[in-house]
Design a protein around this nucleic acid. Structure first.
Length: 504
RNA sequence: GCGGUCGUGGUCUAGUGGCUAGGACACGACCCUGCCACGGUCGUAGCCCGGGUUCAAAUCCCGGCGACCGCACCA
């Protein structure tokens, strides 16, 4: 399946549509259709249940999309998200001006203003690295979407749509800590939209201008960075496919490594980082992603962000590019310290023993792209086999849990099927379908990942039993229709195995 | 943003200056149908948008929008 086929499938199945298509489309924006929104919601709910509701050390937040510009100045985004670019007047190529200077003179140009850059270019007679042509003056390219607060557009009223969700967590850190009565170590989770004015959005939802993230910032005491009470022997024994920075440098592939090796081998900054990476790596595996297609990749020194001490990505081997679906960095105290300094407010936590405030460290920042993660599940589940196409989604992710069909639309079978549907619909997300042949209805359900189909036939009228069909095997088992809710619930949660259904 | 290729119903496509724009799949109605994309009849629906050339444009030219590939960019 290539990217075109994925785009086309997602449209046909009602998963993702091109935004503004009726007006020719808008590059970098995508809309989720009836099936897509349901799968996405299921996925986000599962994530939230696993990492917030079922834990007593993580609390949630839903921050605003627009915040004071001061937040983005303190976080470094106003500076780092706007790049000075120059064009070659001759060959029309465009370059990062700061990179040109850094490459040529081996000095940092990060802090240089546009004027300084222009001065440097003029003084050192810097030319186009490709054709030797003359360069234009440096221009500012800001990757943050801008808007204005109030109806007047002016520099004073300028505001930005958030380019990441994380900063809202730092900005609300003090209020969350106080209202939730959490003590270190604890985490704050958030899901929501972020916006980046990409120069050239491409590759379907893999690089869009509006995207969604789910992430946690996990805070620990600076003196207890390496004391993770949740680490267990089982987790230490857990194996992942890992591509280390070392192996990338030597152009070697990934290899199996246990969490223990990653921690004791010094690959990971802390046990905490290893623990959270394990949690999310395993989250994908538990939800059915092919373990052979997923791996952990350590960032190379030169691709690490300025704040990061150690950074890993979870990658999925798509049949096309766009591998990264998750990143996790040790941010240290960079963010809370920056915001403390910029705002003059103390974001420290009082330490009773030391009798002073300490700035907590973010030892782990699990940050996951919602849109990319969804595509992982779609692509991984997409199966063509024996002439049929089905989405082998984990039933928990499936947009609809069960479809109810009458074998024939006569002799009252349809009435019975509707009654059964009515009996289920308030408990489970089910649908009724009587159109087309029975085989067609199975095929339609398969394509959007409906895990179970129930068919009402003449025996149902006689003895109240129905057939329930498994999407992946197409096997059918006859059960009493009064047991449907319990059986389907059990199948979805994995408490009941389909193969064992017919046994009793 | 630059260069290249491209844009025909929901999807895949036929059509290279003159057709009522054709087909397949999908979708809908009806018929048929006692379990896996059956068959029949009928139907809805399309030349990306805007200019230009021409007696005549889906077709040629220009611009825009969008997609893909390469370059650049991707804290």
């Amino acid at each position: 399946m290539n990217l075109d086929e994925l785009t086309s499938f997602c449209k046909r199945a009602g998963i993702v549509f091109k935004n503004s298509e009726m007006y020719g489309g808008l590059s970098g924006f995508w809309d989720y259709g009836p099936v897509g929104v349901q799968i996405k919601k299921n996925m986000m709910d599962l994530w939230w249940e696993d990492f917030v509701e079922r834990r007593d050390d993580v609390v949630g937040l839903d921050g605003a999309i627009i915040s004071s510009p001061d937040i983005w100045k303190a976080s470094g985004h106003v500076d780092s998200f706007s790049d000075p670019l120059v064009d070659c007047k001759k060959c029309k190529n465009r370059f990062r001006a700061d990179h040109l200077i850094e490459d040529r003179f081996e000095i940092s140009a990060e802090e240089m203003s546009l004027k300084e850059i222009d001065g440097m270019i003029a003084e050192k007679d810097l030319k186009c690295p490709r054709c030797g042509g003359e360069l234009t003056e440096a221009r500012e390219f800001n990757l943050m979407f801008e808007t204005n607060l109030g109806p007047v557009k002016s520099d004073e009223n300028r505001a930005y749509l958030r380019p990441e969700t994380a900063q809202l967590i730092f900005a609300n850190f003090k209020q969350i800590k106080e209202s939730s009565r959490q003590k270190l170590p604890f985490g704050i989770a958030q899901m929501g939209k972020a916006f980046r004015n990409e120069v050239s959005p491409r590759n379907f939802v893999f690089r869009s201008r509006e995207f969604e993230q789910m992430e946690i910032e996990y805070f620990v005491h600076p003196d207890r960075r390496d004391n993770c009470p949740y680490m267990t022997e089982d987790i230490l024994d857990y194996e992942m496919q890992v591509l280390t920075a070392e192996n990338q440098k030597n152009e070697r592939g990934h290899e199996k490594m246990s969490v223990r090796e990653l921690v004791s081998g010094g690959y990971m900054e802390t046990e905490w980082l290893a623990y959270w990476i394990y949690q999310h790596y395993n989250w994908f595996i538990e939800l059915g992603v092919d373990p052979k297609k997923i791996r952990l990749r350590e960032h190379m020194e030169n691709e690490m962000a300025h704040y990061a001490r150690s950074c890993y990505d979870i990658e999925y081997k798509f049949p096309f590019g766009g591998d990264e679906v998750y990143g996790n960095a040790d941010r240290g105290d960079f963010d809370l310290r920056s915001h403390s300094e910029a705002s003059g407010k103390n974001l420290g936590v009082y330490d009773q023993d030391l009798g002073e405030h300490v700035i907590p460290h973010v030892v782990s920042e699990p940050s996951q792209g919602v849109d990319r993660s969804l595509m992982v599940f779609i692509v991984d589940a997409y199966t063509e086999e024996d002439g049929r196409t089905f989405l082998a989604l984990d039933p928990r992710l499936s947009p609809v849990k069960c479809r109810i069909f009458p074998l024939m639309t006569k002799d009252g079978l349809d009435d019975v099927a509707r009654d059964i549907y009515d009996g289920l619909k308030n408990t489970l997300n089910v649908e009724y379908d009587e159109r087309g042949s029975i085989g067609k209805r199975y095929a339609r359900a398969d394509e959007v990942g409906v895990p179970y189909c129930v068919t009402v036939d003449y025996d149902t009228v006689e003895d109240g039993t129905v057939t329930i069909r498994d999407r992946d095997s197409t096997d059918q088992v006859r059960i009493d229709s009064s047991d449907l809710i319990e059986v389907i619930d059990g199948l979805i949660d994995g408490d009941v195995c389909f193969d064992e259904l017919g046994a009793d």
